[in-house]
Amino acid sequence: MEAILDWSLLSSMFRVVAPLLLAALGGALCARVGIFNVALEGMMLTGAFSAILGNYWFGNVWLALLFACLCVAAVSLLFGYLSIHLQANAIVVGVAINFLATGLTAFCLFAVFNVKGQFYDKSMTGLPKWNIPLIQDIPVVGQIISGHTPLVYAAFLLVGVLQYVLFKTVLGFRLNAVGENPAAAKSLGLRVRRYQYGAVIASGVLCGLAGAQLSLGQVTLFAENMTAGRGFIALVATMLGQSNPLGVMGSSMLFGLMDALSNRLQGFSVPTHFTMMLPYVMTIIVMLFFKDKSYLRQSGRIAGK
């Protein structure tokens, strides 16, 4: 068992937790303004694809990152327009956006790269790994914390930033107000829609980064449906963390650990089917213990009439 649980497991946890955490923070922002963002999955997938596309076109990871953020922001704008402006059911729109992302990425994969299934090009470089001076020299800790892509650090940095913004600033205060009682916020003259759009677009940018970490951080390739439900797990992480950045970080790390563990176990004699099940099973089990009531309000009307 020692070989299963060693320090490098924690290191790989940090790596795999980043996309989850980034997306979950996006979900949390949306939840704060009262929007249940089921489209995280599709946005993340779009991010993963556009990051590879940007990398291929510009030959520069930073431009690729920027490109991914812009693309997903556009998708999130669409989500926002339909659910905020046209007042369509956010869950239905979210599901539709997920379809669109699956179809569009597969289509563009063929249209641009002329391949199906997955695209990989040796000449592409992924995100750099940064070592943190001083910390990298500490034994064990350095091994775990140092040597990650900038997005991993960004994800954790954002937790602190968002925690501050949401609970200490005027902006965050108003954002929370909009989510808690939109009618009251509107009667005060707050521009409710503007805050909602802002949160949705920010979640898009975060999902763009999350996708980029998937396709440029862990590996340097894009595969159809490579998010494999991570967007939904991020959604659960959002709910479990009560849309509170620190809470979201905690729950994301739990799922990240499961993800890392599942990767690790594949080297052992357990059939991969079961090791791959681990994150999903864990998510369900964790949901047993942490209940979320807010979704009930949102899922009220779905019959579509």
């Binding site: 089921v38 939904f232 099940m277 999903y280």
Partner: peptide
Amino acid sequence: FRMNLLITTLLLNYIAVLFAG
């Protein structure tokens, strides 16, 4: 247990795929 049906049904999909696999 008041678990969000939308999420559980989605997650159960992945489990079913892997189990049948």
